[in-house]
Design a protein around this nucleic acid. Structure first.
Length: 484
RNA sequence: GGUCCCAUCGUCUAGUGGUUAGGACUCCGCCCUUUCACGGCGGCAACAGGGGUUCAAAUCCCCUUGGGAUCACCA
């Protein structure tokens, strides 16, 4: 049977990086196995719907290069892929469970449930629906239950969890897991608004969509016994389960907004290169065990192995992500990098043409982490230096520097062909015939041209700036010195 | 608190009974060099603790400790 997996987010906002990792592992597994990757929208909580969230989710996935084979907008014959459009299905299946005594009606109000929990808390026992004392099918009797149902009394459907059974399942990543039935709550399957809870909808849809592997976050592990019970109650074969380790904050708690950006969109906006981001995220919890850590999506797909996913949570280490980005930055096509920062350039009133910008990116890309950093880091490439680094000036510009450097500048002015080689030749000849060292001239030149102590190769910088611009800067600086 | 899951350098990890416990990020040093980077070389740094099993345990078992998740008419 061919592999079918799904990513099933709830449209309550942006795509979380933890969600992206889950989607990514599903995707990698599907592609590795020649299977199908399905996107399903779990919007059964009508109170938490966020306008536009579904589109944002799909956009973020798409940015990361994850496109579903089946899902909203891509019918694979197992749709609809949005749970609210499958509404009628769930009641039908919940009735099937009631008919075979795997679930039951309950009529408690939320106040009554709260009171029950309060009592249990006081007597120090774990809060759990008490089937024998609350208002339900069993305590009320069939006649009363039918009467309430006929009168449209608000009710829910609960899973009838067997007390004395032990529920076992085998997790692909964790091995055997077992829980006692007495520790599992009689989960609500169908809410009083007629919508299913996650547990029912998820199991029904996974079965109907013929999902073979449920790959999801570890936070679902505690409720998996309920799902196993549901498959059993329906008489369905359960899919294989694989619970992924959590992505963590620096303090080892579940990755959250409180500790920095967690939305994929935030990372996109910060200027991360998608391939770098995907590469980094995919290595959180798994790796293809080589010495190299830079992998294309195809490499990741080819090497992916669900059984080799780690069990322990992984801290989302931002410095390493930045390093990864800088690695990708260097090998990215200049055109891509240009496109990425196009808007930021106009925001900064930089009007240089595209080819010029690209040459600046190329010049500085080994010294930056994000493409947009050229705007700050390489500000002198777009305008004359507004200021000159004080410490650098003090150190590199001495009393006699002007007189030592001026003849060389004259030589530059006389240059017909303005490129790295011709400039280098002139400089070399000059220091040789004057018994000087490169440092004695390069630092003052860097100061005059850029105003900063750091930057790319000096002649490379000057070549891109152009002869007129460089001569202007020399003149301006010398004038300033003479006036001082 | 109940239940469940987890545990190799600060971090991401390799490792499936015999290794000088490997790599990557970070940090530090050296080399290259006109600066800063890149690159190259090198360094700091780990099997949570205790019991077993075994000729031999990071690897298998048990306990302890520590961490996390989960206990909703949310997913």
């Amino acid at each position: 049977m061919s592999v079918r997996v799904r990513f099933a987010p709830s449209p309550t906002g942006y795509l979380h990086v933890g969600g992206l990792r889950t989607a990514l592992y599903n995707y990698l597994f599907a592609k590795n196995q020649g299977g199908t990757f399905i996107l399903r929208i779990e919007d059964t909580d009508r109170t938490r719907l966020v306008e536009g969230a579904q589109e944002a989710l799909i956009q973020s996935l798409k940015w990361a290069g994850i496109e579903h084979d089946e899902g909203p907008g891509k019918d694979g014959g197992k749709g609809p892929y949005i749970q609210s459009e499958r509404f009628d299905l769930y009641r039908k299946y919940s009735e099937e469970l009631i008919a075979n005594d795997s679930a039951y009606y309950a009529f408690d109000t939320s106040e009554e449930i709260d009171a029950m929990r309060e009592r249990q808390k006081k007597s120090g026992i774990a809060p759990k629906y008490d089937r024998s004392s609350m208002k339900n099918q069993y305590t009320l009797g069939d006649v009363e239950t039918k009467k309430l149902l006929d009168s449209n009394a608000p009710h829910v459907v609960r899973l009838k969890v067997p007390f004395n059974e032990e529920i076992h399942f085998k997790d692909v990543i964790r091995g055997d897991v077992s829980v006692k039935g007495r520790d599992v709550d009689d989960q609500i399957l169908l809410k009083s608004d007629g919508f299913p809870t996650y547990h029912l909808a998820n199991v029904v849809d996974d079965h109907l969509m013929e999902i073979t592997h449920v790959i999801r976050g570890e936070e679902w592990l505690p409720s998996t016994p309920k799902h196993i019970l549901l498959y059993k109650a329906f008489g369905w074969e359960a899919p294989k389960f694989a619970h992924l380790p959590l992505l963590l904050n620096n303090n080892k708690t579940k990755l959250s907004k409180r500790h920095g950006d967690v939305a994929v969109e935030d990372f996109r906006q910060k200027g991360y290169i998608k391939e770098a981001f995907v590469n980094f995220v995919s290595l959180l919890g798994w790796n293809p065990s080589g010495e190299n850590e830079i992998h294309s999506i195809d490499d990741l797909i080819n090497g992916f192995n669900l059984e080799k996913v780690n069990k322990g949570g992984a801290i989302f280490d931002r410095p390493k992500l930045e390093w990864m980005n800088s690695m990708y930055l260097r090998q990215s096509p200049l055109e891509d990098l240009y496109k990425q920062i196009e808007n930021k350039l106009s925001d900064s009133n930089i009007t240089k043409d595209k080819e010029y910008i690209k040459s600046v990116i190329n010049l500085l890309k080994e010294r930056i982490t994000f493409a947009h950093e050229i705007i700050e880091f390489g500000d002198y490439m777009f305008d004359k230096p507004k200021s000159f680094d004080e410490k650098y000036e003090k150190k590199q510009w001495k009393e006699d520097t002007l007189q030592k450097i001026e003849p060389l500048i004259q030589n530059f002015k006389a240059l017909d062909t303005w490129n790295v080689d011709t400039m280098h030749k002139i400089a070399e000849d000059y220091i040789n015939s004057n018994n000087m060292k490169f440092g004695q001239i390069m630092h003052p030149i860097r100061l005059m041209i850029t105003g900063k102590p750091v930057g790319a190769g000096m002649f490379e910088t000057m070549e891109i700036l152009g002869k007129d611009e460089c001569i202007d800067r020399f003149n301006d600086f010398i004038q300033k010195k003479k006036n001082a």
